[in-house]
Design a protein around this nucleic acid. Structure first.
Length: 211
DNA sequence: ATACCGATTAACT
DNA sequence: GTTAATCGGTATA
């Protein structure tokens, strides 16, 4: 394992969720599920700004059993099931009672490749491994049972190493699959590494000027 | 108890 | 570009 440092609580508790989403690009997401260590470098994220964001599950201050963890401290995992099959992993940010979150949409596989290939059923070299939030969770073994877990623990956490992407290669664009959010669907809250193979391809309607 | 819908994906035409 | 798959979350009654 290379030299990496787990992100501290203070990273997550800051108030600017879009800044955090941008800064998470290039960081390393690590899981230890069933004793198996896997990791990947984050290349695509989306920010969800809580009460004031129509695309957020917590819009208007809505609180349900599912969304309760979003109201916890920054540095908590929020995992929920989408379309009945996809486990989507989010990072809760800001302080308690402010339900901001960042969806992790893409990773470049780093460690535990054999485990990830077994979990996904893909072959080595398949660039769709880790591309798209559902695939990220399959590769890393993330399931809804992890919701509420602390990102300062050992089962799942985010760390940084010496690697950084060039700032000009990190681009903002509208979020995917949030057409129901009205004007908020147009906000440039999605961050990705320009041209990276593990960034999901945006549907035409949500695409920006790139390619 | 029931009905509708989704922060998706893969496989189509 | 279109669509089926699939089932928990949420609202409504």
């Amino acid at each position: 394992m290379q030299r990496i440092k787990k992100l501290p609580r203070a990273f997550y508790e800051r108030p600017d969720v879009t800044l955090i989403a941008r800064e998470l690009i290039g960081k390393v997401l690590v899981t230890r599920i069933g004793g198996e260590y896997t990791s990947g470098r984050i290349v695509e994220t989306e920010a969800y700004a809580g009460q004031i964001d129509r695309a957020s599950h917590a819009f208007g201050g809505r609180r349900t059993d599912r969304t309760e963890v979003m109201y916890g401290r920054g540095g908590t995992a929020y995992v929920y099931l989408c379309y009945g099959i996809h486990h989507l992993f989010n990072v809760v940010t800001h302080e308690a009672d402010t339900p901001h979150a960042v969806l992790i949409r893409g990773i470049e596989p780093l460690e535990g490749m054999e485990v990830m290939l077994r979990r996904t059923g893909k072959v080595f070299g398949d660039k769709s491994l880790g591309r798209g939030p559902g695939n990220v969770s399959v590769a890393l073994g993330i399931r809804t049972t992890l919701t509420g877990a602390s990102l300062l623990g050992n089962d799942i956490y985010i760390a940084e190493d010496a690697f950084v992407f060039a700032p000009e290669d990190i681009v903002a664009s509208p979020r995917i699959g949030v057409d129901y959010a009205g004007e908020d669907a147009l906000l440039p809250y999605r961050f990705s590494v320009r041209g990276h193979a593990h960034v999901s391809k945006a549907p035409r309607a949500a695409r920006t000027s790139d390619s």
